[in-house]
Amino acid sequence: MNEEIKRNQNVDAMSNNYDFSSLSSSKDEIDLFELFSIIVKSKKTILWMTLLFAIVAAGVCYLLPQKWTSTAVITSATDQQLQVLDKLSSELTVLGINIGIDSSYLLGTFEQSFDSADLREKYLINSDYFRLKMKENPIDKIQQRILIENIVNNNILSNSSLDKKDKENKHYNFYTLSYSAETPQDAYNLLQGYIDYVNAIVNKNVKIKIQRAVDIAKLNTDEQYRFDLLKAKNNLSVNIEKLKIAIAIANVAAVKTPVNGSGTFNDDDTFPITIGSYALNKKLESLQTIGDITTINADLLNRKLHLNQLNMLAIPKLTVMPFQYLQQASSSIKKNSPKSTFIVLLSVFMGLFCSVGYVLIRHFVKERKNQLAG
């Protein structure tokens, strides 16, 4: 009990010796007016440092490689664009030829060709852009190979609307095509040039497909005609032999002229011996004098006409637009990198922050030295 009383007395004594209420808290407070005054007095220093940061950032943006992208959006060709193809398709359908080319086929073929790495490389290495680039900055074959693959895989892109989660629920398919380069003009020229290059290849493939369909039809019709002609000749030979047998029987039976009656001697509906050997001989002479068997066979004559029409068929020179533009390449060119405006603004804020910090630190260091000196 006595020990507890002593401890309480010691605490009271310490409280009397140290009066905390007399301490000032002003040293722990920040005088905002003083800070603002320091910043205003050093505004020139802050301005020059901020400006220096902005100039350095602008210089860096200028020195960094530029990248501009030209973009085009395409979709299926319209009926008006396919009128030339429709006219030819109708003419071929009359001859039994189905070319199987419609707007979906054309758009799909164009997109498949556009995505071909081989075609991209062939177009690139033969472009004025690439030749000038190699002339200005000669590099070895390994570096050239790396550059080509980088451009082919990263600078030439296509995206289908089917690959995206279409929030607008569009009821048609479209493709976004893009090409990137160091300048806006190069980006546009490369994209438009590659679109024209692929378009020419698609038209070439369309003509090959049509010609192949015609050639297959010619081959099939010719083979069928030859086969039917051979069958007709065989039938003629068989009929001649049957007729000879009928004549021999008629001669044995002494039937020279047609016999009226029940036709007791009739053993062949085609060449009845009841018409007499004289008539049968005349018929034999007629069959043996046939030079062109198609003249007595309507099916063969029609098939020959079909074959002649196919042989005279000439595929006209076609230029088909395999798509329609939703957005032309020239109307959408944007800068991808570097983001100059963003970099400069960020540098301005950094410069402002650093310069204010520098001014304040310099002031307090100077003030501290003065206090120590005093």
Rank of each mutant, 00 (worst) to 15 (best):
F323Q: 09
L346N: 08
V259F: 01
Q328S: 14
S337C: 04
N302W: 14
K339W: 05
L346V: 03
V252S: 12
V320W: 06
Y358W: 14
G357L: 04
K244N: 02
T270D: 06
N336D: 15
V320R: 09
S262Q: 15
I275M: 13
K231E: 09
L305K: 15
G276L: 11
E241G: 03
V255Q: 07
L243M: 08
N235S: 07
N297G: 07
A314D: 10
I333P: 07
P338L: 08
N235D: 12
D268W: 04
N220G: 05
L287N: 05
I290P: 03
S347W: 11
V252K: 12
T257Y: 03
V320D: 03
I343Q: 11
L326K: 14
I296N: 07
R303Q: 14
G351F: 13
A248C: 01
S355A: 14
N311I: 04
T274F: 07
L345A: 08
L310P: 04
I333T: 09
D299A: 11
N251G: 02
G291W: 08
G291Y: 13
N234L: 01
S331P: 00
S277E: 11
G351M: 06
Y278M: 08
N251I: 06
P338W: 05
I333S: 06
N251T: 12
I240R: 12
Y225P: 02
L346M: 07
G351D: 09
S277V: 01
L287I: 09
A298W: 02
G357T: 04
K335Q: 14
I296G: 03
Y225T: 12
K233W: 00
K233T: 08
K339E: 02
T264L: 12
